[in-house]
Amino acid sequence: MSQLTQVKHSSTPAPIKQGWLAKLELGFAPIAAKTRLTLNQSIGPLRVQRPFHPERQANDCCHVYLLHPPGGLVAGDQLHMNVACAEGSKVLLTTPASGKLYRSNLARQQQSQQQLFHLQTNSSLEWLPPETIVFNGAQGRLDSHFKLHGNAQLIAWEITCLGRKASDEDFDHGELLQSIKVYREQRPLLIENTRIHNAVSANNPAALASKHVYACMLATVDQLSEAKQTELLELLREHLSCPQLGITLVRGLIILRYLGDQAETVRQQFEAAWALIRPCTLGREAIAPRIWNT
Rank of each mutant, 00 (worst) to 15 (best):
I159P: 06
K228R: 13
P279N: 12
K90W: 03
F135I: 03
L148Q: 01
A138F: 08
L24S: 13
R284Y: 11
G71W: 00
G88P: 15
A14F: 01
S201N: 12
G99Y: 08
P205R: 07
L240M: 05
Y65T: 09
V134D: 12
N198S: 14
G150M: 10
Q178L: 15
Q6N: 03
I291G: 06
A138T: 06
A202Q: 14
Y183I: 02
C61K: 13
G72F: 15
Y258G: 03
M217Q: 11
H63A: 07
L256S: 02
A207Y: 01
R195P: 01
N59R: 14
Y183V: 01
P70M: 01
L93R: 05
L128G: 00
L208N: 02
L249Y: 10
E131T: 02
V182D: 13
P279W: 12
Q153C: 06
K34D: 02
E131A: 07
E87F: 05
W274E: 06
G140T: 04
N59D: 15
T5W: 06
M81S: 12
A207Q: 07
R284K: 15
W292F: 04
Q139A: 05
V213Q: 01
Y183W: 15
L245W: 09
A29P: 00
L253T: 09
L4S: 06
A22N: 02
H53D: 08
A272R: 14
E131M: 03
R290P: 01
T35L: 11
R251F: 06
H173T: 02
S144C: 09
P205G: 05
N82M: 14
G260T: 01
S167R: 15
S144N: 15
C62G: 11
A286T: 09
P188H: 11
G88I: 14
L24K: 13
P279G: 09
A272F: 00
W274G: 03
A227W: 08
E169W: 12
T230N: 11
V83D: 10
E175P: 01
Q18V: 07
A273P: 00
W292T: 02
R195T: 03
N198L: 08
L249S: 09
C85S: 15
Q109R: 09
Q3Y: 09
L218T: 04
L245P: 08
A84K: 14
S123D: 01
W20P: 00
R47H: 15
A209V: 01
N193H: 09
T95S: 15
Q115E: 10
L142Y: 14
E285N: 04
N82D: 15
G163C: 10
Q153M: 07
D143I: 10
N105C: 05
K228S: 10
G88Y: 15
K90R: 12
L154Q: 03
T220A: 06
I247H: 05
Y258P: 00
T294A: 04
A156P: 07
P51R: 15
R267E: 08
D60L: 10
R251S: 11
C161N: 15
K211A: 02
I196K: 05
A75W: 13
L154G: 04
H145R: 13
N40W: 14
W127G: 05
W157H: 11
K211C: 08
I196T: 05
